[in-house]
Design a protein around this nucleic acid. Sequence first.
DNA 1: AGAAAAATTTATCAAATGATAAAAAAGGGA
DNA 2: TCCCTTTTTTATCATTTGATAAATTTTTCT
Lengths: 187, 187
Amino acid sequence: MNIDQILDKIYPLSAKSKLVLKENFIEVSFPKHLIIIRADKVEKNIYFIKKGIARTFSRIDDNEITFSFGKEGDTIASLKSYIANQKGYENIELLEDCELYELNTENLQNLFNENIEIANWGRKFAEQELIKAEERLISRQLGTATERYNELLKNYPDLIQRVQLGHIASYLGITQVSLSRIRTNIK
Amino acid sequence: MNIDQILDKIYPLSAKSKLVLKENFIEVSFPKHLIIIRADKVEKNIYFIKKGIARTFSRIDDNEITFSFGKEGDTIASLKSYIANQKGYENIELLEDCELYELNTENLQNLFNENIEIANWGRKFAEQELIKAEERLISRQLGTATERYNELLKNYPDLIQRVQLGHIASYLGITQVSLSRIRTNIK
DNA sequence: AGAAAAATTTATCAAATGATAAAAAAGGGA
DNA sequence: TCCCTTTTTTATCATTTGATAAATTTTTCT
């Protein structure tokens, strides 16, 4: 998924504004297992996934909780850093070798104040992330772990192939052992 | 909490832009128990709470799940309606007699395209809701029901006084009976 | 105030999940 | 390929939470 597709999906910009915004992106590659965003740091960059997959998680006294998975076209960001310039809650780990579009956000605030199209692009970006956050919140609260696992299988059949079970278990809010049990019963 | 305080808290507007935006608000009062936002409808209005308290919830085959509580200064909105003009996931019920600022959103899209300050106000509004949604998602996933109840008590001591236990239980993701049990053990 | 409705507590039993440990299977690197 | 590490499965027992029902307390309405 290329940068034009990613930008257009958020909000359609004029050719001119798009050029101005695109100047702030660079294309980068990072290896599997890299933790690209750290919970204890204020991050200056956000990323859009060109190719690969990532997961957002927090560590709570020895336990890891996975909040979301991101794939091609999705965002990798410390929202607290991006929005409030404060250190965030989440770590983000690359689960495959990834090609990313990196956006340094220091200059973005100036663009928001100068260019109304880019301001609205930023508005839509936040709004779309907000809808996704709400959907995650709702799906997490609905039904049993078994139901949520089946839901996940239905909506993201490729995820199971690309992500290890322990991460999926922590996404579902159960232990890896419980998920293994559930899978046995489904078969 | 008056409308100027609410608007300023989101993003500081020039006097002129603030007047333009404020023209779209009206002050309204509604009684306790009213369901002001319905999950099965596309809602044209969003609200800010001047006085009172509300809860956001979904009904899933006979069970109710409370996603959030809102108090003075908070927003009451069907995010899907506001952002995507589609029917939302959530019902919103007033838990007290409420005084609200009602914002009809049909004209808001035009303002976003015409006034860069208001566009940035809308951006900040979405960003702040996004941070809140993320915090809810994280807090819901952390620790046992007992820990989450104690956390809630610490952060919102007045909530217990104003909201009935069944709603708090469904917010914590447990049954009312379980919460009652937990409270007995804490004492 | 008094009656009716709603909310909360208490109790019992069943089901789901956690914690731990150990075995089996899969994956990665020299 | 082979060895070592990581991941997944399986098993056992303890704990938490759910479902249901009934009793008690609180709230609401006239």
